[in-house]
Design a protein around this nucleic acid. Structure first.
Lengths: 236, 236
DNA sequence: CGGATTGTTGAGGATACTCAAGTTAGGTGG
DNA sequence: CCACCTAACTTGAGTATCCTCAACAATCCG
């Protein structure tokens, strides 16, 4: 039988905020923890959605493949995030694929527990709703960017978002602390890796970032903010 | 004092499904109904979000204006829909403007009631979460379209979505039963009214639709589906 | 019957895509 | 430890889509 999961692992997560120790224990009773090596998938697009998850450590990418075979990145999953909640979207299958980009650990629950947990723990329902709210807001932000902004601005916004969500401070700037390719950035911004490559090369020449194979260091976030605002000023 | 609102107005809405008569009465106690003539706004972007709403009759358009002054349409609000739930997005102001495109009637509640209502009526919380789920899913669909599809396909998808949400059957096809301009369609698909005009003119010549000033009749939905799928076949 | 809003259509041009060829970096196995 | 192989990336050239600018036409409303 699996060893019990300790409260301390989740008690500090916003999702479980304002919940009593007893509630946390109840929640954990039906939870399973599992490790996902980098590159492995937690679930795949189209698969029967029989579980939902919370990421404890690591980083995941959620992608979709269109009927024409084009891939796009829906979002990154950061530690503490709820993911794979197909039931909340009234779906029985997962609409995307979740892949570990670094070694990750996630808790999972049987999807059948979803309704019951929300009913027994109203605080959890409120927190889950806020999670969905944030995601809706982010989706709308990206929609606005895609409809109104040119590629360079969108890439600037995507890079800044990554820095906020997954940046760790270094002496020369902010490091995106998981492997990220130009292709990934292209899939997040609705462009091609060629265009991303050209843009990042120009930024690097101007000293705004430092690139590298699947590496990204933001040196001058302020300039990127300006680019994101459409003021493409003197970085030449 | 305002006259009480009758249960029957809301009891059939999915949002209030599975709620007892007593619950419905409790919900309606703090509700106010109001009429919005076509063209008037229910709330405006940036305004303090002190109320949330349910649309009873009519049709609203929710738009955002970017810092550069470009407008885009976030979504259409149909009868039965919950809207203006800034609190669920953890915002204190409305992120967009809601405008009546036809004469509309909406119920409103003080935003302060939001948490209390959800706590007192778990079924409402579940339904509200599903509402947010649907919206998230639609936002993701539009994101996918914007990142991967060309303009004509996006317009086809937008028109078909409109037909599903607000179409009424006529003898020649499906009528969008509220005034919709090319500019509106452009704002829904991230393009310009010029491009929309050209596309719709071509479709009309091929007999797929019938246009007109702020009018739209879908004649051949099947062909539009094909166009949406990227098979731009023989409509020439 | 005017004025305003909405829609049409053309010409020109820019952004960013496709196609193509090559280079660099990293991992793997001998 | 070096050679090789693959995945990631770079860079160039040509071009398509769609935007911008512009002028005009049609429709609606008062």
């Amino acid at each position: 039988m699996p060893s019990p999961i300790d409260r301390s692992l989740i008690s500090s997560l916003p999702l479980f905020a304002a919940m009593s120790a007893a509630s946390l224990d109840d929640v954990l009773k039906t939870a399973t923890s599992r490790r996902y090596p980098a590159g492995t998938s937690v679930f795949e697009q189209g698969q029967l959605a029989d579980q939902f998850f919370v990421l404890l450590f690591g980083r995941l990418r959620v992608t979709q493949v269109t009927s024409e075979g084009q891939q796009l990145t829906i979002r990154m999953v950061n530690p503490g995030d709820l993911f794979g909640i197909a039931k909340a979207l009234r779906r029985t299958d997962y609409p995307g694929t979740a892949t570990a980009v670094t070694e990750s650990v996630a808790l999972s629950w049987p999807m059948a527990e979803w309704s019951g947990l929300l009913e027994r723990h109203p605080a959890l329902a409120v927190n889950a709703m806020q999670t969905m709210g944030s995601r809706l807001l982010e989706a709308q932000t990206r929609l606005r960017e895609l409809s109104t902004e040119e590629v360079e601005r969108r890439v600037a916004h995507a890079v800044l978002r990554l820095a906020n969500q997954a940046g760790s401070k270094e002496k020369n700037g902010v490091r995106i602390d998981f492997p990220i390719s130009k292709q990934d950035i292209a899939e997040m911004t609705g462009t091609t890796l060629h265009t991303v490559s050209r843009i990042l090369t120009a930024w690097e020449a101007a000293g705004l970032i430092e690139g590298g194979r699947q590496k990204l260091l933001i040196v001058d976030a302020h300039q990127l903010l300006l680019i994101g605002d459409g003021l493409k000023p003197g970085y030449l």
